[in-house]
Design a protein around this nucleic acid. Structure first.
Lengths: 144, 144
DNA sequence: TTAATTCCTATTGACTAGATAGAGATTTAG
DNA sequence: CTAAATCTCTATCTAGTCAATAGGAATTAA
């Protein structure tokens, strides 16, 4: 299961994507519109900023905007920031590989083989879906 | 990420599958061979028993054996017992559906669409892999 | 200078994961 | 029949994580 943080992050980013790539929006507006606890959203956006997914400007008329074109921000990118690796086990993670404790022989581990296939399948999906396609879906269904 | 419990469960079940479908093995032997904390394994096997994945007989020469043919116990079956639904969100779970808090319109939610595709992809993999195929892999690679 | 905003650090409460302890119930070997 | 070996059950503990909140520091526009 993804975390609440991940859900909030995706909703906030989708909000920005629908508004248009260049436009800047303030935390409080996103929080209100998407019904996200304001302070929590602050922390989330800050994290997203560190990885370049969003950009910010501070001060009186500050706000947040997408850090790069919406089509270059995949669901996988976002989930990796909020929830860590997609993989079901560190031993099959591409971004954060680590050997399992007590692993007898990784090359032979039948569990690993299955989890690796699962990782590849989810990664394939989540890397192909991005904020641009998602925003387009929303517009098409008239939920703008 | 899957839990440690899931890893232990899979290893224990694989141990039983390699031993052969009908054979019964005692907790302490599995615990030793697979380096799993004994008391923890007890609790895990008990849970697996409640869902019919393993069978037990008590008393002096008791032990555990698989509850049905190894080919009918998928990785998905096991993970659902130890870690709950495979889905990344309750709103895309087949086994444990629940609407998200504050969901505007499920039919339109772009996040849901992506998570649904991800769920289907992992479920497809994890339901096709079972203890029989995994045990066969192990034997083939000489790690019996 | 002041008001509005993002940035940062710390803290809280609830819950879960992982593990352990100690009886209770059941079966079988002898 | 008895004793020992095993599974069954309930309770507990510790450490860590998730979700959320608080309060002020830094920055910028008017």
């Amino acid at each position: 299961m993804i975390s609440q943080k991940a859900r909030y992050a995706l909703r906030a980013l989708l909000f920005l994507a629908v508004r248009g790539e260049g436009t800047s929006v303030q935390i409080s507006e996103i929080a209100q519109s998407e019904r996200i606890p304001r302070k929590f959203l602050e922390a989330i956006l800050l994290e997203l900023k560190k990885t370049g997914i969003v950009r910010s400007h501070r001060g009186r008329s500050g706000g947040y905007s997408l850090g790069r074109p919406a089509k270059d921000i995949s669901f996988a990118d976002v989930l990796r920031v909020t929830d860590g690796p997609l993989a079901l086990s560190p031993c099959v993670s591409v971004m954060a590989y680590r050997k399992c404790d007590n692993c007898f022989d990784e090359a032979v581990c039948a569990i690993r083989k299955a989890l690796l296939a699962a990782r590849d399948a989810t990664a394939q999906i989540l890397e192909s879906r991005n904020l641009a396609t998602a925003a387009a879906q929303l517009r098409r269904s008239g939920a703008l």
